[in-house]
Design a protein around this nucleic acid. Structure first.
Length: 288
DNA sequence: CTTGGGTCCTGTGCGC
DNA sequence: TGCGCACAGGACCCAA
């Protein structure tokens, strides 16, 4: 479920616990997640200062000293749990949460010298961690083929139209293609296509150019609104159990099979169908 | 090059 | 109550 907005929410949540602080010890409880973890990752992380946290697509990039970056992907079920003393600006505590009992699937734990603890828990282990030299993003295998950030300046109507041109793949698949635009997942693609009034099965190359162009601000809006919702729920996470990753958000079509279409004046019903093995939710009365 | 399908993994929820 | 199965989901990888 973590798509761009959730990952951004997690990144922001990690900031006060990690940014500017030193990893006293990293606990690595298994050799691999989706792929093998870096050799000696625990040793390589210990004593390193976190200079800052960035996000690229659905990846969290934790910049360390010595020009090295730790990449974290939450996969499907990855969560970050923050506990202990969380230090804000001017070294004021912004939160103190008791360290929880270790849980099943706690794969990596960062013990910060500040007293904070960040636990990566991932039952399904579709998540990943890796390290690469800071600045080599354009060559690094997991990042080099990603399309532009949907909220960035490179992503505009002309770009999207050019990438869709001639494509026979369904527009839903095209939007899920991280090489075209990076950060969208199944949920937000369904929401975007609903708002755009486009049938998810329509071939990407057969959508009128002005409709393709109109998708860009919709994509930006859907993601921005979700980030905003995530940001407001961050406070709740800190107060509650410090778990970062999911937040309550209301969707217009996703997971609303059988419910009435919320579009003004539409009498349709949200349907669910499968496209390349994934559930699509849409109102086929107003999405064409 | 494009496109589609298989695959990894475990917890959850459903029908029988 | 228990069992089996479909499903959730990101993204790599390979075959056609």
């Amino acid at each position: 479920m973590p798509e761009l907005p959730e990952v951004e929410t997690v990144r922001r949540g990690l900031e006060p616990a990690m940014s500017g602080h030193v990893v006293e010890k990293a606990e690595v409880n298994r050799p691999d997640l989706r792929w093998p973890l870096p050799e000696n990752m625990a040793a390589r992380l210990s004593g390193r200062r976190v200079l800052g946290l960035r996000r690229r697509s659905k990846y969290i990039l934790i910049d360390l000293d010595k020009e090295e970056t730790l990449l974290v992907h939450l996969g499907m079920s990855g969560r970050m749990l923050i506990s202990g003393r969380i230090v804000g600006d001017f070294h004021h505590d912004v939160g103190v949460a008791e360290h929880p009992e270790p849980q099943k699937h706690d794969h990596v734990v960062f013990h910060m010298t500040s007293g904070a603890r960040v636990t990566f828990n991932d039952a399904r282990r579709f998540g990943a961690m890796d390290m690469f030299p800071t600045g080599s993003e354009s060559e690094y295998w997991l990042l080099r083929d990603l399309g532009p950030e949907p909220l960035g300046n490179e992503f505009d109507g002309d770009y999207l139209a050019a990438r869709f041109a001639g494509r026979k793949t369904p527009v839903k698949s095209a939007l899920l293609d991280q090489g075209i635009v990076s950060g969208l997942g199944n949920i937000y693609v369904c929401e975007v296509l609903f708002r755009a009034g486009i049938d998810p099965r329509r071939h990407a190359g057969r959508i009128a150019e002005r409709r393709v162009q109109s998708m860009v601000p919709i994509i930006r809006d859907v993601l921005s609104e979700a980030i905003l919702a995530g940001g407001s729920s961050l406070r709740d996470y800190r107060q509650a159990d410090g778990e970062l990753g999911y937040f309550q958000h209301t969707f217009q079509v996703y997971d609303r099979e059988g419910q009435p279409c919320v579009s003004d004046g539409c009498t349709g019903t949200v349907t669910r169908f499968v496209q390349s093995g994934r559930s699509t939710f849409a109102c086929l009365q107003c999405q064409r």
